[in-house]
């Protein structure tokens, strides 16, 4: 169920250049699943006016906490990064449909591919896959070493490979360069990142089952305003989907890339 709640900041830490890890506590956590997002109002004034969509990166139902990892870039996310422990944040969520964790058979293997700030939702996914006895292979691309995060955490969950465009950390190049080299064996792939990366992956693994998480600029975040629509391929009946309420995760082949 979608709720609006004033959640409490229990932790906020800078974990890489301009990248923050924010832990919030509240009831919304109980309904959250990997790949879903929350829509955050960072200020009670009209500046900035709109909410900001951020993926849920780590869920802890017992402590009623979840973690968001975001890049402080524009006005909204910069102001979010100023929040202190004990502050309240207006959160709407959980929103959208996340990654289907049970798409991989028990004992199977999942390939998780992420790009930059698309990596965070794959953390909770990887945790839940591991809990189901699914082996995970992580292949994550970043611009440069300064903005990488969570390598150790992912390493405890499965095979982990980091790639940077400038070669300052891990292999030099794009995730697809490394995938070409690794030729991993897997049942299903899950991906979140920039559009060119998602497009490349769909072409890379035409025979495989895959799930992709999309980004689009949003108004309402709940499916009412038609801001976030994507055209679909001929394979699906609907002409369009809304990233906020039909997605952000779609099976491979649904969204026209």
């Amino acid at each position: 169920m979608i709720q609006q709640e004033r959640m409490t900041v229990v932790q906020q830490e800078k974990i890489a250049k301009n990248i923050y890890e924010l832990t919030l506590q509240g009831e919304i956590v109980q309904d959250a699943s990997p790949g879903q997002f929350v829509h955050i109002r960072v200020s009670d004034s009209f500046e900035p006016l709109l909410r900001r969509p951020i993926s849920i990166a780590n869920i802890n139902k017992e402590s009623r906490e979840f973690t968001l990892i975001y890049r402080a870039e524009g006005r909204g996310t910069q102001s979010l990064s100023q929040k202190q422990i004990g502050d309240e944040v207006d959160v709407l969520g959980p929103l959208g449909n996340g990654f289907p964790v049970d798409a991989v058979p028990k004992g199977g293997t999942a390939l998780l591919v992420g790009g930059g700030i698309g990596v965070p939702p794959l953390y909770e996914l990887s945790k839940q896959l591991k809990a189901r006895d699914v082996r995970t292979i992580h292949v994550f691309g970043f611009a440069t070493e300064d903005v990488t995060f969570y390598e150790e955490k992912f390493s405890t969950l499965g095979d982990t490979h980091y790639v940077t465009v400038d070669g300052t950390h891990g292999t030099k190049g794009f995730v697809t360069d490394l995938l070409e080299e690794l030729t991993p064996e897997f049942d299903t792939f899950y991906a979140c990142g920039p559009l060119p990366m998602l497009r490349a992956l769909e072409n890379f693994y035409p025979e495989k089952q895959g799930f992709l998480s999309f980004e689009e600029r949003m108004g309402c975040g709940i499916g009412a305003c038609f801001a976030c629509v994507c055209k679909t391929t001929d394979k699906v009946e609907k002409d369009y989907v809304k990233v906020c309420s039909d997605g952000p995760v779609f099976a491979k082949g649904v969204v026209k890339l």
Binding site: F46, E47, L49, R217, M218, G219, F226, Y240
Partner: peptide, 14 residues
């Protein structure tokens, strides 16, 4: 179907 995206942009208080 409407227009291509991006369809929205934030502005000061609007």
């Amino acid at each position: 179907f409407g227009n291509p995206t991006p369809r929205v942009a934030e502005t000061p208080a609007g």
